[in-house]
Design a protein around this nucleic acid. Structure first.
Lengths: 84, 84
DNA sequence: TAAAAATACTCCATAGGTATTTTAT
DNA sequence: ATAAAATACCTATGGAGTATTTTTA
């Protein structure tokens, strides 16, 4: 389970929209779809479901999003203070 | 900055011994040396210094180890509960 | 001289891209 | 008819291995 995939998922979860998330992340949409799929396989649990043309979060997807809301900022705070 | 490298560093930091850490992690010693080096480049700060035949942590290495002590268990707790 | 880490390569897995197809409004 | 996601395929980067060379107690 790698950080980048967790960050990717978090962005998708916030926007509930794969294409917009991909734009924000500056990657192609299929790359993002694949990354989420691979995370779902790693965790062995679905994170997204199609709802209409867009996507929605599964129950575990919501849980993971909430966890990441706490964890990701802690990780971002790890880096040595950047130059002024 | 990827999780695996942070976990690798954490193991090295705990043991203060690259070869033993590599054994614990079931990877080859040069692979671990490279991973740490690449993390140091990403963070743009040294984490390890040679001390005698072994290694020791830099000031930032100690700081990072302490941060990871808190963060890594939170990440491990993310995974959906495993079957009994 | 022996134990540990660093360097030099080689290889392969996968992250990411483009093109296209499927799904649903 | 159009917007979004999924699938198919290809490529290149870097993670990991083996072999070897420093380093130092």
């Amino acid at each position: 389970m790698e950080l980048q995939k967790l960050r990717y998922f978090y962005k998708v979860a916030c926007l509930e929209h794969v294409t917009k998330a991909a734009e924000d992340l500056n990657i192609a949409q299929p790359a993002l779809t694949q990354a989420i799929k691979s995370l779902e396989e790693e965790l062995d649990v679905p994170l997204l479901v199609k709802r209409g043309r867009n996507i929605a979060l599964t129950e575990y997807g919501v849980y993971l999003k909430n966890k990441l809301e706490v964890i990701l900022p802690q990780i971002d705070a790890i880096a040595p203070s950047s130059p002024c």
